[in-house]
Amino acid sequence: MIHLSNVSRHFRRGPDVIKALDRVTLEIQAGRFVALMGPSGSGKSTLLNILSGIDRADEGEVEVAGQRLTGLSEDELAVWRARHVGLVFQFYNLMPVLSACENVELPLLLTDLSRPERRRRAELALEVVGLMRERFEHLPGALSGGEQQRVAIARAIVTDPDLIVADEPTGDLDARSADQVLALLSELNREFEKTIVLVTHDPRALRWVQAIYHLDKGSLLEGVEATRATQAVEQTLGVPPRSAAR
């Protein structure tokens, strides 16, 4: 599903060149629910952006859902994202002037679906994420954080994408809402076999994901380092140790 080979991404900040990603090689099978973890500035979000077609690698090869992303133009990437990727952000990023249902309908504007069909699919997606029907017409401002994140997840799945990427989806939620959102993502993975890549600092994610990839200073940790990082997270949660993805 996701193949990254020696991917590097550099940012220029004044005279300095910052290596956000340094020759990262990664393979994620379809239908997996994985987490990218690491300290701030480790390159998690950059990696997420590259594998979701939001950003482009300076070096290396990126292939996602059978599409080689390297070399695609900005507009070609946009079209590809609209078809293959569902995005969930930390701060939901719902349009405040649109109702919950209209927000979910938004990505469907890029399809050829009729207006009633778009509406039907948006309502279905909201039902899948468990938003109460009476909340469908509420503006985001009238919804709780957890509800807004459910709407954001519904927006991410409404186009039936191959890949769902979530950048800190629990970062702005209380513990209960965060658990519900993680459970929902896990359910989408299990029930609908969606490939989900989650960037998070939240150790609770460990309970739901099938694998964790640790990043530090732009590099993917492997072997003993990766195992230690995973164990550190498990200790935070007070659960028995298990192995990291690498």
């Binding site: 939001i54 900005e74 507009d75 946009a78 079209v79 590809w80 994202r81 609209a82 078809r83 990727v85 995005l87 952000f89 701060f91 990023n93 349009m95 938004l106 990505p107 890029l110 927006r155």
Partner: peptide, 16 residues
């Protein structure tokens, strides 16, 4: 700006 960035991320092309 955040909403426009989000629309782009969702796949809205520059022309749209």
């Amino acid at each position: 700006a955040a909403e426009i960035a989000m629309l782009k991320a969702l796949g809205f092309r520059r022309s749209v």
